[in-house]
């Protein structure tokens, strides 16, 4: 039970704390909650299959494009996106619908990409997911019939506030939890730890992986929708840097647990925000811009070398272990 309650509590607490700050600081909290949504999406696939994906930000991007294009008011589309397909130029949907469609688009895209990719494994799979990222980025960058191309997404209603970001993150957590305790999720974890054995008892690793990839793509699409409703983003915002930072979050938190994904996303976002403030000259220190990546990159490398299972050890939060590990109990024993 704690497996689901703890991450939700942490996310809710983050949102509540965020409300006490002014807008200029509040954005860091919103950012962190969107990061949770992306990292949990990534976790649904990586955590349950053990296969690395460099391609998930493609699904975030597709979600962002879907939600963004569909929610700019019809009247404003010609100004920023003059080359849209007619049916896109003539449609505008509301906030909720745009998010639902973003999730749908992310899921469908992941399903299509996964059909061939999930046959691969190992390094080959890693590089192939990277290829998906490259292709997606390349197409979104130049294909102006589906979006703003090189321009930023302006005029998207900025509906992603603390509340929506928190709801989105919690929704992702609930789905991830439901999946990991479902029969499919458990089978896939069994296959992750021992693929031949899983095959022997009749589990199709391919289908299971495809399922996880699709679900995780849908959650990533949803996160992309939240993202585009939060900031006027451009295609570079959903490319290599975001791929790096979200992978870093997952790795630092611990790839094999939901708790690890959430803790990693929040911890790295927190650190990143502090450093960003420092870069802006707050708090008396003055860091040059770009120091954030240096710190996060170094932290990620150190975690991988010293504690490859991540801050949480890749395990779910466990009260029993927490108590046993506490100094008081150890002293008494």
């Amino acid at each position: 039970m704690l497996t689901i309650v703890a991450p939700i509590t942490l996310v809710a607490a983050t949102a509540v704390v965020g409300t006490f700050f002014e807008r200029s600081t509040e954005i860091y909290f919103i950012n962190a909650l969107i990061a949770v949504a992306i990292v949990v999406a990534l976790y649904v696939f990586v955590g349950s299959t053990g296969v690395l994906s460099f391609g998930h930000i493609s699904f975030v991007a597709v979600g962002a494009w879907t939600a963004g294009v569909l929610s700019v008011p019809v009247a404003e589309k010609p100004a920023t996106m003059p080359f849209l397909f007619d049916f896109l130029a003539e449609t505008t949907v509301g906030n909720v619908w745009s998010l639902v469609l973003a999730a749908l688009a992310g899921g469908v895209f992941a399903l299509l990409a996964g059909l061939p990719l999930m046959r691969l494994s190992g390094l080959t799979a890693g590089i192939a997911t990277f290829a998906v990222l490259e292709i997606t980025n390349n197409v979104l960058r130049y294909y102006e019939k589906v979006g703003p191309g090189l321009n930023v997404f302006s005029s998207v209603p900025e509906t992603t506030d603390l509340q929506q970001a928190a709801i989105g993150a919690i929704a992702a957590i609930v789905v991830a939890f439901a999946y990991q305790v479902s029969r499919f999720g458990r089978q896939l974890r069994a296959a992750r730890d021992d693929a031949p054995a899983a095959r022997a008892v009749g589990i199709s690793v391919y289908r299971q992986r495809l399922g996880a990839f699709t679900l995780s793509g849908a959650l990533a699409g949803l996160a992309g929708g939240l993202y585009v409703h939060y900031l006027p983003i451009s295609v570079d915002a959903v490319y290599l840097d975001l791929t790096f930072i979200t992978l870093a979050m997952l790795v630092i938190g611990g790839m094999t647990s939901l708790w690890g994904a959430v803790v990693g996303a929040l911890a790295v976002s927190g650190l990143d925000s502090l450093l960003a403030e420092a870069e802006n000259g707050a708090a008396g220190i003055d860091l040059p811009s770009g120091s954030r990546i240096v710190v996060v990159g170094a932290l990620m490398a150190v975690v991988l070398i010293v504690r490859p299972s991540g801050l949480t050890g890749g395990r779910e939060l466990n009260l029993g272990r927490l108590l046993r590990g506490s100094p008081g109990r150890r002293g008494a024993a």
Binding site: L52, F244, L247, A248, G290, I293, V294, G297, A298, M300
Partner: peptide, 20 residues
């Protein structure tokens, strides 16, 4: 996987240092 992600991190780190 650990090694690949670690060198991915190093790549970004060095790139950020170069930017600085």
């Amino acid at each position: 996987a650990t090694m690949l992600v670690a060198t991915f991190a190093v790549a970004f780190l060095l790139q950020a240092v170069a930017l600085l």
